[in-house]
Computed example of a mutant assay.
Amino acid sequence: MTSLRPVALITGVGRTVGIGAGIAERLASAGWDIATTHLEAYDDRMPWGRKPGDVEAVHARLRDAGAASVAIEADLSDIAAPARVIDEATSRLGRVSALILSHCESVDSSLMDTSVESFDRHFAVNVRASMLLIQEFSRRLGRPAANADPAGRIVALTSDHVVNNLPYGASKGALDRLVIGASRELGDQGVTANVINPGPVDTGWMTTEMADAVRAETPAGRLGTPSDVANLVAFLCSAAGGWVNGQLLHSDGGWSVKGG
């Protein structure tokens, strides 16, 4: 089934409170059809646990916003998963013209207690899968007609958190370079590629003490929300955002600006 609406593939949409869900709902309201990926086994081993029905609830909201949508379960550590995901999204909704990389492997560990297995899985999910998704996205995108709007968009979510979260932060640093490189290498396809660092966004992982500390360090005195991230993603995916390319954008309410 295809429609005249452009199609966005958003990875890492497993929970209603997550950043991926916020992005999906915002793009649906902006006129996009939406494909998402999720992995219940990941939520099972995280502190928040699996929330049965969350994926279905997100997609009900997308349909209420007028979007056709499809949810795809995928373990992105599997080298074959990216091609399968792009194939299914394309066959169900049509050509994907925006790729939003909001999935991640994120397990706390520090330099001296990070296992090889954990390190490798972080890079397999956060970097290798992202590279393969970008490759498959580019191959299927081709060269859009001159009046195609948008021609192609890639947006990835990153983090500069490294201390005591070493494999996550290191793999996100590699993701940054991968996406920024794509901004030049895929430019002849009319693709823009940008990275967003949203700072701390509480999606259920913050303690009360941590949330209070972040509020105290943020000029607006509040936490970031998935909607804050989603608004910037929607702009970058729009025609108006087409001149922003190859950038790592801090969208964190000034949290990263430290006083003297």
Rank of each mutant, 00 (worst) to 15 (best):
I86F: 08
P52S: 11
L166E: 11
R15D: 05
A68H: 14
V58M: 06
T208C: 00
T16K: 07
N231Q: 13
A129E: 08
A182P: 10
L27K: 02
S227F: 01
A234E: 14
V125L: 04
A8F: 03
T192E: 01
S97W: 06
E209P: 10
A80V: 11
H59I: 02
R63G: 14
R92V: 07
R215L: 01
P52T: 09
W255H: 04
V125F: 09
L62T: 13
I134Q: 10
D87E: 14
L166R: 00
A83C: 11
D188Q: 14
A193V: 06
F235N: 06
V127Y: 02
P144I: 02
A65C: 07
A68D: 05
T225G: 06
N147L: 10
W243Y: 14
S138N: 09
A216D: 05
A8Y: 02
R139C: 13
G259D: 12
L93R: 05
S109V: 00
H122Q: 08
P52Y: 00
G246K: 05
A124R: 02
L101S: 06
A211P: 03
L99T: 03
V125R: 03
C237S: 05
R50Y: 10
A145D: 15
S159N: 06
D108G: 14
G53F: 13
N165G: 10
T37C: 14
H250T: 15
V7D: 03
R153C: 09
R26E: 04
P150F: 05
P200C: 03
L175D: 03
A146P: 12
D108H: 15
D252Q: 04
N197F: 10
S118P: 00
A220D: 00
A80E: 08
A65I: 10
N231V: 10
R128S: 03
S256C: 02
G22T: 15
V155Q: 01
V195P: 04
S102E: 10
R5H: 11
E209C: 07
D78Y: 01
F123H: 07
P47N: 10
D75E: 09
S3P: 05
V107W: 14
W243S: 11
M210F: 14
D108S: 15
M46Y: 04
S130I: 02
D43S: 15
D43A: 15
S251D: 12
L27I: 01
A98H: 02
T11I: 06
S91M: 11
D252H: 04
A28N: 02
A174P: 02
N194M: 04
G49Y: 00
G142T: 07
T218M: 07
L141R: 14
L157D: 04
V7S: 03
W255G: 00
V96R: 01
I79Q: 15
